Computed example of a mutant assay.
Amino acid sequence: MDQIKLNGMMFYGYHGVFPEENKLGQRFTVDIELFTDLKKAGQSDDIQDSMDYGQVYQVTQRVVEGEAKNLIETVAEDISKALFEQFGMLQAVSIYIDKPGPPIPGYYESVGVEIYRERQDDV
């Protein structure tokens, strides 16, 4: 399966289980791998045969900068659902969300979650 990758997208959101995270917010970095067949796009050189990276960014931005969630696991799940709804040619997606400097005891560069989802018949 071919892939389109969007790396290091940065957004500001209010996700977390601690009240200060919901009030102050923080930066989130998102990497996405989109799995689809790109042969037709490679032959036609037509964006209609591929997935518009700008639209992928906008879908991701709406979720990350939208309604606050307790868990970044939920944010990742919501991104995957929105991408499957927006892009009929999308067969699978891998999403990594990185949360720099989490407000938990200890010293961390970041914490993150990665999910992989495939298109289901009911999507």
Rank of each mutant, 00 (worst) to 15 (best):
T74P: 00
V111S: 11
Q120E: 14
Y57A: 12
Y12K: 07
K40C: 14
G25N: 00
Y53L: 15
F28E: 10
M1H: 06
V64N: 06
D49E: 06
Y96S: 15
Q3N: 06
Y116E: 07
D45Q: 08
E85N: 09
L90Y: 00
Q48C: 02
N7T: 06
Y14H: 05
Y107E: 12
I104H: 05
K99C: 10
Y116H: 10
S44C: 03
G54Q: 04
G106Q: 02
Y53S: 14
R62V: 02
G88A: 02
T29V: 14
Y116W: 03
Q43S: 08
K5Y: 09
I115E: 04
G101F: 07
F28T: 10
G42R: 11
D46K: 05
P105E: 11
S44F: 01
R27I: 11
L71P: 00
L83C: 02
P105G: 09
G25E: 00
Y14A: 01
V17C: 05
V59R: 11
S44V: 02
F11K: 08
Y12L: 07
M10V: 14
G16R: 03
L6A: 10
E73H: 05
E77M: 01
I115F: 02
I47Y: 08
F35L: 15
G8C: 02
Q61S: 09
Y14F: 06
A92Y: 02
D37F: 07
Y57V: 10
S110T: 06
S50C: 03
R62H: 05
E77A: 04
A76N: 07
Y14D: 01
I95M: 11
E85L: 08
D37C: 09
I79S: 03
K5P: 08
F35W: 14
R117L: 04
F11I: 11
P105N: 08
I97S: 14
G88E: 01
I4E: 15
P102V: 09
E85C: 04
G112W: 04
E85V: 05
Y108W: 05
